[in-house]
């Protein structure tokens, strides 16, 4: 009976595990800063439509390129729109699209990687060759081609980003599976006659989950970078939706006399990307994974 109770104590609930990881992450200064920035941006994304002082698409020709003032905190842009309003609203689309994109990347990349690592042989060879080929096409060329032919709607962007940022996860998941697969408990599971599906679900996923989650968190920041690059190039969010990448690209031409219109979105986007990066780093350290030796592929 006593053995049983000790066993029960060691088995923590999912909530306890998650809160422990978060506490470990926040105990480092860099992790704490990263988490705070990320939480700030997420809260802002939820409440910004209610606290925005002006209409983000209200064009006012009399207020063109006003310098920051008590009325317009961050000034106005070339169409007389309030830069503060547009800046606090500018992260919503990017955050939503890249969050769901990373989830898709995590799912398909992780599962395909685990599958390849498990079955090995010819199928593994063929799939990895195709993944290699996709890796060697620059993401920006492929993304631009898809977006320019299929349009820039959310239904196109989320799966396209999810697909192109998932191919790197395939390699990570496959390598992690290779590490696990030689262990005794897999051999004994096979000896007990478990199916491939049961081995993946019960034995492999719990052991490779950490590595894949860390990779996914990292992918999120790269995807955000990629998505805002697309917006910047004019292939992302379509105007007049406020988006940082688009705002920077619009205000760039006039920055010699209206630098405020370009600085505000720059601060917004940079802080979000740095926040996600620091959080992902702290997450990796909290789980005991060193990912700084890996290339950003």
């Amino acid at each position: 009976m006593k053995v049983n109770s000790i066993y029960k104590e060691e088995k923590k609930s999912a909530f306890q595990k998650v809160s422990e990881v978060i506490i470990t992450m926040a105990s480092r200064p860099s992790g704490f800063i990263g988490l705070s920035i990320l939480v700030f941006h997420i809260i802002l994304a939820f409440i910004s439509p209610y606290i925005a002082p002006y209409d983000f698409k209200a064009i006012n020709p009399t207020l063109m390129l006003q310098a920051p003032s008590a009325e317009y905190w961050f000034g106005t842009d070339d169409l007389g729109r309030d830069v503060f309003t547009r800046t606090i609203l500018g992260g919503r689309t990017a955050l939503t699209i890249t969050f769901f994109g990373s989830l898709i990347a995590l799912l398909w990349g992780g599962l395909l990687g685990i599958f390849c690592g498990l079955v090995g042989g010819k199928i593994d060879d063929i799939v990895m060759r195709i993944v290699d080929a996709f890796l060697s096409i620059p993401w920006i060329l492929a993304m631009l081609l898809i977006v320019s032919l299929l349009g820039t709607s959310t239904e196109v962007l989320i799966p396209a980003l999810g697909f192109f940022y998932g191919k790197g996860i395939v390699r990570v998941a496959r390598a992690a599976t290779h590490d696990v697969i030689a262990k005794d408990f897999i051999v004994s599971a096979r000896a007990r006659g478990h199916s491939n599906f049961s081995i993946i679900w019960n034995e492999i996923i719990p052991n490779v989950r950490d590595a894949i989650l860390v990779e996914g968190a990292m992918r999120w920041s790269w995807m955000l970078l990629g998505f805002s690059s697309l917006s910047f190039l004019g292939f992302g969010v379509s105007p007049p939706t406020p988006d940082w990448g688009l705002m920077i690209s619009n205000a760039r031409g006039l920055m010699s006399f209206a630098y405020w219109a370009v600085i505000a979105p720059i601060v917004g986007l940079s802080s979000l990307i740095i926040g996600i990066n620091l959080t992902a780093d702290a997450f990796a350290k909290a789980l005991g994974i060193d990912r700084s030796t890996k290339a950003p592929v």
Partner: peptide, 22 residues
């Protein structure tokens, strides 16, 4: 390095133009 690494190229390039060129 964390700053240099994570900030998108178009932001660092825009800032370089703003500060050094303009």
């Amino acid at each position: 390095t964390i700053f240099a690494m994570t900030i998108p190229e178009f932001i660092s390039a825009t800032l370089l133009i703003l500060i050094i060129a303009i």
